[in-house]
């Protein structure tokens, strides 16, 4: 439990005066994501601890350096859970980094991503000002939604100091149904899990196997499993699979290979729909490991591995680029934070 807000603010002010860029780092578990940012390290790692947690409010507020594992542990004691099932990355991943890099797990399409759980946050901008946006209540539309805008910004808009999150009760029961089928049949079966009211929390396809995870009340899961084709999977094997998928451990990427990720409409029959692709999020997220130099389909991003010099997030049209550039200036007028981390031009 350490509050180093004043120290973080001080470092930002020094960086501002000396015009020295800062590279914001939590536990450094996401150094392989995005582009490489050159700058002096600003570590948020020690800024840890649960600031408040009230189970009956379904709200937890933590400092940005608090690990996801720690939050999971605190919530589990009260039989609650983080809604967006983020990766824990060897128990090191922090809440600030998870939000900045927009990391959600297999349940994303049905329970929402980081953005849907965030209620508010604290932020130090490029002027060294510490501010609070949003809050700890479920509904809040006063002022612009600065909190959710940080999701996916890779720390380019400021230093996240604390995050307030909505949480939910833990699931009572879980079962995974497995069906062997070719990829096109899997894609044909997946849409029903978006259009039918079932307690589905994960749908993946890998190496000829379609897996559907059901979580919820005992009665709900028991009745729903009868409606899902395939056989129940052995619980330990199923748990290992969803862990591997969440932690991005299905592929092992290297310098000579690039792991491509494509987030798209779940029913798309063309893009990254090969037997060697991994499908997650009911087909709305697709992964492919390719040798460096070989491009995946248009719209895919260079998620991990290979060179991080070029753009990793694909092209951005001129209007979106102009607006994001101006937004960056509104938060960080001297471009101190994570230069180049999100785009080469920011």
């Amino acid at each position: 439990m350490t509050d180093i807000t004043a120290q973080l603010q001080e470092q930002v002010l020094i960086a501002r005066t000396t015009e020295q860029p800062l590279n914001i780092v939590g536990a450094n578990t996401k150094s392989g994501l995005g582009r490489i940012s050159k700058g002096q390290t600003l570590s948020v790692r020690e800024h840890q601890g649960v600031i408040s947690y009230s189970p009956s409010e379904l709200v937890i507020r933590v400092r940005a350096g608090t690990t996801i594992s720690c939050i999971n542990h605190v919530l589990a004691e009260q039989n609650q859970r983080l809604i967006f099932e983020p990766p824990v990355f060897n128990e090191q991943a922090t809440m600030g980094g998870t939000l900045a890099a927009n990391q959600s797990g297999p349940c994303r399409p049905w329970f929402g991503g980081v953005r849907d759980s965030v209620l508010g946050l604290g932020l130090i901008n490029g002027l060294g000002e510490h501010m609070q946006f949003g809050g700890q209540v479920m509904k809040n539309v006063a002022g612009f939604d600065v909190s959710r805008s940080q999701v996916g910004a890779m720390g380019t808009l400021g230093v996240i100091t604390d995050v307030s999150l909505k949480v939910l009760p833990a699931f009572e029961s879980e079962v995974t149904m497995a069906l062997n089928c070719p990829v096109h049949e899997a894609l044909h079966l997946m849409p029903r899990y978006f259009r039918e009211h079932l307690p589905v929390t994960g749908v993946s396809f890998w190496q000829g196997q379609l897996l559907v995870r059901l979580q919820g009340s005992q009665a709900g899961v028991d009745s729903a499993m009868k409606l899902i084709p395939g056989e129940p999977m052995e619980p330990l094997l199923a748990a290992q699979w969803w862990h591997k998928l969440r932690e991005c451990q299905v592929f092992e990427s290297s310098q000579s290979q690039v792991l491509w990720r494509h987030n798209l409409g779940a029913t798309d029959q063309q893009d990254m729909c090969h037997d060697d692709c991994l499908l997650n999020w009911g087909g709305a997220q697709r992964w492919q490991l390719l040798p460096e130099g070989e491009e995946a389909t248009n719209g895919a991003i260079r998620y991990l591995g290979g060179s991080r010099e070029a753009e990793v997030n694909g092209p951005v049209n001129s209007v979106a680029r102009k607006l994001q550039g101006k937004l960056k200036m509104a938060f960080d007028p001297q471009s101190i934070f994570n230069p180049g981390r999100l785009y080469s031009w920011m």
Binding site: G113, R115, Q150, V151, G152, A153, N263, L264, A266
Partner: peptide
């Protein structure tokens, strides 16, 4: 799709 890259 969900979660297109970049700030939200």
């Amino acid at each position: 799709g969900f979660d297109t890259p970049g700030m939200d």
